[in-house]
C-alpha cells in the first residue's frame, strides 16, 4: 500500500491513462509552463498548472499530447469537443471553476447536447478537470464551487472526489467514459493523503460511498465537507451519537439508492454543501429525499451551506462563509432530540 496525496493520485491517473490510450491528450494554460523558453534548463514542466498537478506530463509524453494553450478557454474547450467526437479523448483544464463563464457555452450547448440532439450517433468523450473551493483566501473570483451549475445540465456528468483514493479511481473512469465529465478538484484537498493501491481499478461513476456507518443521523457530505462531517462525527461519538456519513462522490449520475438506504436507516438527514444555497446540490438532494423518503423521515432535512453571498476574501468572513464542524455538530444535536 502506498500513501498518496490527492495531487499525486490525480497525476498518477493521468499518467496511467496516457500510457493506456494514445488518444488521451491534455490541454490547458501552463499545464506544462515555460513555453517559449524550452532552450533553458529547468524550464520544462516549470509549472504543471498553478498547483503542479500535471507536472511531468509534458516531459514524459511530449508537446503533441500535452498542449499548453493561450488564454482562450472557449477555443480549446470547443476544440476538445471536436477532437473527442472524432476519436481523441481530450482532457482540458479549467484553471479555476470560476472561469466557467468564459467557456460555458461549449459545455452547456455543445458538449452536453451533441449525443442527444444529433440522434445519438456521436459521443463526446472529454473530461474537464477544474479546481474548486473556498478556504484559500483567493477571493470571490477564485473560490467558488459551482457544482450545481454543471449538474443542472442534462448531458454532463459531474464528479467531485474527496480523497486520493476516489480521485484516482474516479479520474480513471472519467477519462474512459464516453460522455463529457466535469471533474472537480478541491484546492484545499490537494495535499491531503490516504492509501491508494497501485493497481486501483477505475471507480464507476454513479456509485457513492458510505464513509462511516452510523445509526442516529445521516450526514450527506459533498467533497471537502466530508472532512468536517468526519470531525463532527468523532466529537458526537463521545456523547454517544452515532452518525452515518454518505459521500455521493458523483452528482450526475447520483447514487440515489445509497442515499435513500441511509435515510431509511436513520430517518434524520443533514446535507452539507460548501456552495451557495439556492438551487444547490444540497437543495437538490434534500428535495429528492423529501419526495422519495417522506414516510421514513422523522424530521425535516437540514441543509448546511454557505450563505447566499459571493466568497468574501478576508479570513474571518471567509471562515464564516464555509460550513464548519461546529455547524454540523449543532445540527446533529438538534436532530437527535427530535
Amino acid at each position: 500500500m502506498t500513501i498518496k496525496t490527492v495531487k499525486d493520485a490525480i497525476n498518477d491517473a493521468l499518467v496511467q491513462s496516457f500510457e493506456e490510450d494514445k488518444n488521451v491528450i491534455l490541454m490547458g494554460e501552463d499545464i506544462a509552463g515555460g513555453k517559449g523558453r524550452e532552450q533553458y534548463q529547468g524550464t520544462q514542466d516549470a509549472w504543471g498548472g498553478p498547483f503542479g498537478v500535471t507536472q511531468g506530463l509534458y516531459t514524459k509524453f511530449g508537446g503533441e499530447r500535452v498542449r499548453d494553450t493561450t488564454i482562450a478557454e472557449a477555443g480549446f474547450f470547443g476544440a476538445a469537443i471536436g477532437a473527442a467526437m472524432t476519436g481523441l479523448r481530450p482532457i482540458v483544464e479549467l484553471m479555476y471553476v470560476d472561469f466557467a463563464g468564459v467557456c460555458f457555452d461549449q459545455m452547456m450547448n455543445q458538449a452536453a447536447k451533441v449525443r442527444y440532439m444529433f440522434g445519438g450517433k456521436q459521443k463526446v468523450p472529454m473530461v474537464v478537470r477544474t479546481v474548486v473551493g473556498a478556504g484559500f483566501r483567493a477571493g470571490s473570483e477564485h473560490s467558488q464551487t459551482l457544482y450545481s451549475l454543471y449538474t443542472h445540465i442534462p448531458g454532463l456528468k459531474v464528479v467531485a472526489p474527496y480523497d486520493a483514493y476516489d480521485a484516482k479511481g474516479l479520474l480513471l473512469s472519467s477519462i474512459k467514459d464516453d460522455d463529457p465529465v466535469i471533474f472537480m478538484e478541491h484546492k484545499r484537498l490537494y495535499m491531503t493523503s490516504c492509501e491508494v493501491p497501485h493497481d486501483l481499478k477505475p471507480i464507476p461513476l454513479g456509485k457513492g460511498r458510505i464513509r462511516r456507518e452510523g445509526s442516529d443521523v445521516t450526514i450527506i457530505a459533498i467533497q471537502r465537507m466530508n472532512l468536517f462531517a468526519e470531525e463532527a462525527a468523532n466529537e458526537l461519538e463521545k456523547i454517544n451519537i452515532s452518525c452515518e456519513i454518505v459521500d455521493p462522490r458523483t452528482y450526475s449520475p447520483l447514487d440515489e439508492e445509497l442515499i435513500f438506504q441511509s435515510v431509511k436507516k436513520t430517518g434524520k438527514v443533514i446535507v452539507v454543501d460548501e456552495s451557495n444555497p439556492k438551487c444547490s446540490l444540497a437543495s437538490e438532494i434534500s428535495s429528492l429525499i423529501s419526495e422519495k423518503c417522506f414516510s421514513d423521515l422523522k424530521a425535516a432535512v437540514i441543509k448546511i451551506t454557505a450563505p447566499h453571498t459571493p466568497v468574501p476574501f478576508s479570513p474571518p468572513m471567509e471562515d464564516f462563509y464555509i460550513p464548519s464542524t461546529k455547524t454540523i455538530i449543532d445540527a446533529v444535536k438538534k436532530l437527535k432530540d427530535v
Binding site: 439556492k278 450563505p307 468574501p312 474571518p316
Partner: peptide, 22 residues
C-alpha cells in the same frame, strides 16, 4: 480591525434564509 464574520452578509441584495451558526 478585522471585519466581523457576519459582515460577509452585507450588500447582497437578495437574501436567502439560511441558518448560519458557525
Amino acid at each position: 480591525p478585522w471585519p466581523q464574520p457576519e459582515d460577509a452578509l452585507e450588500e447582497v441584495y437578495v437574501n436567502y434564509p439560511v441558518e448560519i451558526n458557525r
